[in-house]
Design a protein around this nucleic acid. Structure first.
Lengths: 118, 118
DNA sequence: GGAGCATATACGTGTCAAGGGATATACGGA
DNA sequence: TCCGTATATCCCTTGACACGTATATGCTCC
């Protein structure tokens, strides 16, 4: 699944499809990519469940499917917990600096603090 | 960046480091992976900013860095909007079925609805 | 039914990176 | 200073995949 989105052209195609469904020809024009390459990448994306297609005469319209993205999100979850801990630590650190600023009135013009409290 | 996490062994290493920092030898043992391979993957991860290391005598302790994960999360953001729309659509669909259940008291024992409202 | 467009597949080629093993570097202890 | 441990780097081979070109399939309209 990660191998799929590791390919830049495939990510470009996915980004295109966020706004709305597109035909192969539209993708080909917008990404300036030879048509067989578009079709092949779409094939990979479809096999991996990232997109699905419907037939409209000779055209095929491709649109996103949510499931794989949710899986990526699920993989990311543990790390998200980890990095928010770090953001909290940073916040605490900055809070301490705020306190030091309050105690030290000599006002050496350091960093401005424009953070809001939760 | 996606190429980095596309490699299964590297994802395994990252998952290991979620709980706490680890030395190369510990990773080697837990993942049953030859040591040069561990070092090489760690090198890639470090160059990409996913991990950082500190020296402890002959040991090197590796721990996660949050930034690249936040970038992955940022990339995922537009798609998250997209898939929550779909979840909402599903919710609306199920809500409609709820209404139909209420209107139709013939109570054909279909799916139980155990969803909560937000 | 034939022409033309839209899309898919087949094949050949080059590149790049993972894996394995051997070896180098660095540090701590006797 | 010598040895053992811990980690990093080097070399080589192999496989996978992206890309380009050529060709096949399928549909619409005249």
């Amino acid at each position: 699944m990660f191998e799929i989105i590791a390919e830049p052209n495939r990510r470009a195609i996915l980004s295109l499809l966020v706004s709305s469904q597109q035909s192969v020809g539209e993708i080909e024009r917008e990404l300036r990519m030879p048509q067989p390459m578009v079709s092949k990448h779409l094939r990979v994306l479809r096999d991996a469940g990232f997109v699905e297609s419907t037939v409209d005469a000779q055209r095929r319209l491709y649109r996103l499917k949510p499931e794989p993205f949710q899986e990526v999100d699920a993989w990311l979850a543990p790390f998200r917990r980890f990095w928010s801990v770090h953001v909290d630590a940073l916040e605490r650190h900055l809070d301490r600096m705020d306190h030091m600023d309050h105690m030290d009135q000599s006002s050496t013009p350091t960093k401005k603090k424009t953070r809001g409290r939760r």
